[in-house]
Design a protein around this nucleic acid. Structure first.
Lengths: 122, 122
DNA sequence: TAGATAATTAAGCAAACGGTTTATTACGCG
DNA sequence: CGCGTAATAAACCGTTTGCTTAATTATCTA
């Protein structure tokens, strides 16, 4: 997990609207290749290639059912993405900053047992 | 935000270990092109191009200071990524599922009081 | 004014990407 | 068996990517 090469493949796979749409579809349940291809104005081999990219990035898995190849979402890799972005959360999340400041304030007030009142900020 | 084309550019920019390393470096503070290039066994123009990709994805901004072009992280686009992944959290996060079940239980107990909350769709 | 330094532009190249059309494989069914 | 359906493989094509080296632009400094 959290491996650099794996992240390369996952981000590259996600950098395409067709593939993201396929993932969105699969989040509602498994589907065959033809079912996944239906919404797109694109040849079936093109979809097949997109699925291969998603599979190699481990964003989906494929099984066999007669001549059908039902696809299933593998959310583990999306979790990896979420975990990767977490390291930057403190930069964009105001709540995170507010919490950090609150912790700092708490530390200060317990340090010198001062007035504890008279602060401002929104 | 949450625009499809923008996400294309952001994910594509993140699909490269050099560019992710540059972002990690910038999360610790602004830096010039040469400073950013230093850790890599790669020509300066190559780094310059990576920075252009990051800039066009709006993952960084660049200013002017004499002959220097200090780069700064723009975490907004990383926030977009985090928000995008959120839609799949319930699939991988067991705690999320537990919470969803708790909400469902709560909804059931308040149903007969006619809250007028969201009904089903499709 | 001449250098040195910071960074980009230009040109070139091999490999990967995203699509196509045309086979080909695999399976179920009458 | 022969046919229809699901899906992949093969070959091809234009564009993009990720890198190179060489040249150019912009700015500070002696």
């Amino acid at each position: 997990m959290e491996d650099a090469e794996a992240l390369d493949a996952v981000f590259a796979a996600l950098a395409n609207p067709t593939r993201r749409a396929i993932l969105a579809r699969l989040s509602k349940g498994d589907a065959t290749v033809n079912a996944l291809a239906e919404p797109f104005d694109m040849s079936l081999p093109a979809i097949s290639k997109h699925l291969r990219v998603l599979e190699q990035a481990e964003l989906i898995t494929r099984s066999k059912d007669a001549q059908f190849r039902p696809c299933r979402l593998n959310a583990e890799r999306l979790k990896d993405v979420a975990l990767w972005t977490e390291q930057y959360r403190h930069i964009w999340d105001a709540r995170f900053d507010a919490m950090a400041r609150a912790i700092e304030d708490l530390r200060e007030t317990t340090d010198d047992q001062g007035t504890g009142m008279g602060e401002d900020h929104a």
